[in-house]
Design a protein around this nucleic acid. Structure first.
Lengths: 148, 148
DNA sequence: AAAGATGGTCAAGCAGCTTGACTATATGCC
DNA sequence: GGCATATAGTCAAGCTGCTTGACCATCTTT
């Protein structure tokens, strides 16, 4: 593989990622929620059982102060709430509210709509699943970073 | 395809995009260039024959003031220079300097290194090429946006 | 020639992050 | 038990990279 082809792959990957992010954001807004794309990344970490600010910070690849500010914003908008941590009096558990869950479902719907459109371009759902599996194989385990 | 799978695909895509961006950036820095990821996106537009600030702004999906500031930064670091536009006295053509070309080549090398690593995870170069072709099929033509 | 559109810059503002300093609680070690 | 150190979280200030608004020079249309 020539070097220039690697840049082509990079460009395609980032174009697709940017487009997807934008359209999910638009879809979430269209369903009556306000926010910015970073919310979604936070929600995926908070979804199962909540998380501490520090855990969220590591997930997002930002400082804990940055994560704390994001949580403050989410609290103000009613998507999450802070609870005392059951086993650590220093920490606080950030959990999704019902509205937070509703927003997450809206994001899933919007994402599904976009991905459905890809079936047409790729030839079918099987190709989309294959793409998903390939990406999962090379996806890192580390923090989710902004793409530029 | 269930909605939650679409979010899984989104997460994998953005994780890969973020990782790739980060590692290309690291590789470029390791080769003696300073900058930030946005430079690369600008270079791909400037590479063939240069572009005006307005064209660059459209490519990046930012205002022309934002693009102008980026160009100012690139000029200060010696990667590009502004020339009079051959057919429009209002406009100025922004073109890569020799150092700008060298930086572009460094980015290509770094990208190739990362992508080479994917061959192992995916099973071979043929799979990487297939991934590239699939992504190219769903990549939008519009401006390149930040991924969150 | 006049009127509007377009390319570019200057200036100010702002969002979202950072670094630095600090308190409260937990943990490890003697 | 008691002390030293690490960790969770917040407050405050600062910075970076973008935005909006205003403006001038030049091109295009009529």
């Amino acid at each position: 593989m020539q070097n220039s082809e690697a840049l082509g792959l990079t460009a395609a990957l980032l174009a697709v990622a940017g487009e997807l992010t934008q359209r999910i954001h638009d879809g979430v807004v269209a369903r009556g929620f306000e926010g910015r794309p970073a919310y979604g990344f936070a929600f995926t970490r908070l979804a199962p059982d909540g998380a501490t600010v520090t855990e969220l910070a590591r997930h997002l690849g930002v400082t804990k102060q940055g994560a704390s500010q994001l949580v403050e914003e989410l609290v103000a908008k009613g998507y999450v709430e802070r609870r005392p941590h059951p086993r650590d009096a220093r920490a606080r558990l950030v959990v999704l509210t019902e509205r937070g869950w509703a927003c997450t479902r809206a994001a899933e719907e919007a994402a599904a709509e976009v991905v459905e459109g890809w079936s047409g371009a790729l030839g079918g759902e099987a190709e989309v699943r294959a793409l998903r599996e390939q990406l999962a194989r090379i996806a890192p385990y580390g923090p989710i970073r902004p793409a530029w």
